[in-house]
Design a protein around this nucleic acid. Sequence first.
DNA 1: GAGATTGCTGTGAGCAATCTGAGAGCGGGT
DNA 2: ACCCGCTCTCAGATTGCTCACAGCAATCTC
Lengths: 231, 231
Amino acid sequence: MENVKVLVVDDEPNIRDLLATSLRFAGFSVHAVGNGADAVHAAEKGEPDIILLDVMLPDMNGFSVTKKLRSMGIMAPVLFLTARDETEDKITGLTVGGDDYMTKPFSLDEIVARIHAILRRTKQATIEESVLEVGEIKINQDAHEVFVNDELIDLSPTEYKLLRFLMSNPNRVLTKAQILDHVWEYDFNGEMGIVESYVSYLRKKLDPLTTEPLIQTKRGVGYMYKSAKNG
Amino acid sequence: MENVKVLVVDDEPNIRDLLATSLRFAGFSVHAVGNGADAVHAAEKGEPDIILLDVMLPDMNGFSVTKKLRSMGIMAPVLFLTARDETEDKITGLTVGGDDYMTKPFSLDEIVARIHAILRRTKQATIEESVLEVGEIKINQDAHEVFVNDELIDLSPTEYKLLRFLMSNPNRVLTKAQILDHVWEYDFNGEMGIVESYVSYLRKKLDPLTTEPLIQTKRGVGYMYKSAKNG
DNA sequence: GAGATTGCTGTGAGCAATCTGAGAGCGGGT
DNA sequence: ACCCGCTCTCAGATTGCTCACAGCAATCTC
């Protein structure tokens, strides 16, 4: 994460701030703007490594913005943000080259993962690793495959995201609120009990194949993924 | 703790004073205000390193305050204070970035610990250490793990908090009243006998693994955590 | 040493946090 | 339309924590 520059473009201040804060904390250098014209301007000046672009902007749509950028020789990959109900063809038309898209509402962990994936595909230079291996579990993030002691297991999308988040913070207690904020979509508005349920699902799938339980409950605090080495 | 500036924002004078006094005593430089407008003003002038922000304020709520601050370029992490019963619905997004939240009533030691945790996460610059090691005992605060001579032991949340408080004041007698005030939630209204009980629990777990008893009773005064090497 | 004071710790009731199974609702695929 | 897997809720079971209390031990006072 050696000073990767991200340009965030979204007209909703809440979403923009959420993204900016969250990505800054994830180690990116972030510049955030609220409309297409500013985006073009900022991209020209700032030479971002990747652009997060809402397709619905007040002045111009994401497609026009991208076209404009490309015509100016700015080839940074774009991660489009679209509403769930955008038409399928509109979206597929956008995702050419190194580009990708995510539907709103998204989860913060997923955004970060997606950015890493795109950077991995575009600049081989960075030493971004697509395989996350901690303790007895190995995740291949390109293939979305999870191996427990080299045995492939099948996880639902949410189970996968939860495990990935736990594994990217090994030996550190994560509160249920933190897990909810990072793994679930930002508009999720249920109870934290859902985290308990999914931890339960994960344990049922993982524990039979491991030598010791990997997800520990820290009563009154949260959960922790324990990696074997050290302590 | 090299002159870290904390801005405390709470409209209840009791809580505000409690926090201010306690944080000053913990070595922070504190400025305290009672409403959102003053908070914005104070943050602008004072450039705090961290902000303790009650979400329920007379003029504006904590989120508006934060938004306002962020829009002004003030990026200091925020530790939100929320009532226990408004927890479930409104905490979404509070643990994103450097931010975190605590429910009222809280314990003072926990507030201090949380502030240190946040500073640790946000400014890697400062030499905030997540491992607290005094004498034969080592606490890993990220993992909430306690080692006695490198052997992992299991403590309940209250036992953990008590030990952490004792260890952060080594070679210094703490009265039962002080312990009660720092370790238990501020609205606790039981007897000081509870401190005796928990000291007893701790000793039962710690002493079998240490070369000498680490928690000393100063009859008529209080308790002292003794570290071998000076103090 | 006797009585008073202070501290220690086992017991147990009540409670809070967590786990988990069952099932409702939704949506995608056939 | 039907099936199937996934998400999420709910409630009962379970775990184990907190705290009060009471009797005992240690220490102090005279």
